[in-house]
Computed example of a mutant assay.
Amino acid sequence: MEEDEIAARIEAFDAANGGGVGWYEEKGAYHLYLLTNEAPIARLKPTGTGDEVRIAYWSHRRKWDDIDDMGGCLLPLDQALDHVATNSIFWTWT
């Protein structure tokens, strides 16, 4: 999957859900943040397998952490975006 396609899908998901989330790409991962105060929301890192991404959240340690202790959560991009939108762990710092 090309990087521009990932960015377009992130933007389309955000627009379809009311907006308010920005993103930037750094070191091969897409970082989502709240536009109003730039609070970190999630990091989506493509795995190289289809449109699968590894999801991370901004933890109390002030760094990106996997959302589980078993090697991270891997989901197709659309499912990952839905998971971020509905799981409160990603919205702790917003």
Rank of each mutant, 00 (worst) to 15 (best):
D4G: 00
T92P: 02
R43C: 11
F13A: 05
L34M: 08
A15E: 12
P46E: 04
R54E: 13
G50R: 13
G22V: 01
N37S: 12
E3D: 10
Y33S: 06
S59Q: 07
K45N: 01
L74C: 11
L34R: 15
G18L: 10
R61H: 14
H60Y: 11
R43N: 09
R9G: 08
D4E: 11
L32R: 04
I41Q: 05
P76I: 00
E52L: 14
A85H: 14
E5G: 07
V53N: 09
C73L: 13
T94G: 11
G19L: 09
W58L: 09
L75P: 04
L81S: 03
A39Y: 04
A85Q: 09
L34I: 09
M1W: 14
M1D: 10
D14S: 03
W58C: 12
I41A: 03
R54D: 09
D69Q: 05
L44G: 10
L74S: 10
A56F: 06
A15V: 01
P40T: 00
I55S: 03
G72N: 10
A16M: 03
E52T: 15
I41T: 02
K27Y: 12
W58K: 11
I55K: 06
V21N: 00
H60T: 13
G19T: 05
W64K: 07
A29Y: 14
W93V: 02
A12D: 15
Y30M: 06
D65P: 07
L75N: 02
S88Q: 14
D4C: 00
G28W: 13
K45A: 09
T86R: 15
E2K: 12
H60Q: 15
L77Y: 02
G19V: 01
W23V: 01
I10V: 15
W23A: 02
Y33G: 04
S59K: 08
E38C: 01
N37P: 10
D51G: 08
R61M: 12
G48N: 06
D78R: 02
